[in-house]
């Protein structure tokens, strides 16, 4: 265990010093890597640890982004405060969806379809709300300053995104060793057995979806203040949910480092593919390649890449993890 912690400390140190050595463009790629690792980790809490598969996390991203942005634009509330309010809003919606889904005992693909349906209803509703810019979308006025969460260049965003990512790692690590986290895993593995041991399955699923939605919405605030443009199609469509879940699934679902590893692999790949192939005038080919990679990754690493790495490293690091 000690080796792993010192290794992580070293990696963190390198990441903290990295901006001194790379260009602004590369920093931008790292911002996306951390952002998607954070979003994936938030999703991982619900699906990876507690079990119910959500394909509607774009809804929480959108709610967080819109609430904090509207608060900042109309009432002058700084996004640093607004993000927590957005998180609470998303959490309430998540709890409502969870209440329906879990109370009525939806499992597997049925819960997936429920989350898709709510996500799409959210997107269609947002598309028709005048205060959210209607069909035009919402442009965030650029007012640089720490209080406004707006900055020039990628450097401040790099450190904020890194902070988000480290925060999510800590939350999930604390969760992993806590009572809650162990209950999550128990009910993921066998709900009936968990229930028969006296675990309140409904309660812990609700905690998982509330926490997951809350954290996803915090990421939504970051997104809004990094991209400066919100449109229901770009923040709330099913495609956004797919982007969120892709990385943790490829990296290793239900593992601490899965989302980060998935994001470290997939985010630069999608960036490289995009910048190289759209220039050649072959629009779409980068997504074909990306799709091929996804399918290949699923076929060859059905347990995710992290469990593969674990298997390879086990003889070197010894028995460091109990799972």
């Amino acid at each position: 265990m000690k080796i792993i912690y010192s290794l992580l400390g070293l990696i963190l140190l390198i990441l903290l010093l990295l901006p001194n050595f790379v260009s602004d463009y590369i920093l931008g790629v790292f911002v996306l890597i951390f952002f998607y690792a954070y979003m994936g980790q938030s999703w991982n809490i619900l699906t990876g640890y507690a079990g119910p598969i959500s394909l509607g996390h774009s809804l929480y991203l959108g709610i967080g982004a819109y609430i904090s942005t509207k608060l900042a634009m109309d009432l002058g509330v700084t996004p640093w405060v607004g993000m927590w309010i957005g998180g609470l809003g998303a959490s309430l919606i998540g709890l409502a969806i969870g209440f329906l889904g879990f109370r009525f005992g939806l499992k597997g693909v049925y819960f997936v379809l429920l989350t898709i349906a709510f996500g799409e209803i959210g997107r269609l509703t947002a598309l028709h709300l005048k205060p959210l810019g209607h069909m035009m979308g919402l442009f965030v006025d650029f007012k640089p300053g720490l209080a406004n969460f707006h900055f020039r260049g990628n450097l401040p965003y790099y450190y904020i995104a890194l902070g988000f990512m480290v925060f999510s790692l800590i939350v999930v690590r604390v969760l992993e060793v806590s009572k809650w986290g162990r209950y999550f895993v128990a009910l993921r593995e066998d709900e009936d057995a968990a229930e028969s041991l006296g675990i309140n399955v409904f309660k812990y699923k609700m905690i998982a979806i509330g926490l997951s939605a809350f954290m996803t919405a915090l990421g939504g605030t970051f997104y809004a203040n990094y991209i400066f443009y919100l449109h229901p199609t770009s923040v709330m469509s099913m495609w956004v949910s797919i982007e969120i879940i892709m990385r943790p699934i490829i990296g290793g679902i239900g593992t601490l480092f899965g989302p980060l590893i998935g994001s470290l692999l997939l985010t630069p790949l999608s960036e490289i593919a995009r910048s190289y192939f759209t220039r050649a005038g072959l629009e779409g080919i980068h997504i074909v390649i990306y799709g091929l990679l996804l399918v290949t990754a699923v076929l060859f690493f059905p347990g995710g890449i992290f469990s593969f790495i674990q298997k390879v490293l086990k003889p070197i690091l010894g028995e460091s993890r109990e799972s």
Partner: peptide
């Protein structure tokens, strides 16, 4: 090959197939 996998894995594989087909059509 994916029929016995975790459902989330199945979703991602089928989404991959979707991305390939849709953008092949676009190409």
């Amino acid at each position: 090959r994916i029929m016995t996998f975790h459902e989330a894995m199945q979703v991602i594989a089928m989404v991959g197939v979707m991305m390939i087909l849709e953008n092949m059509a676009q190409l």
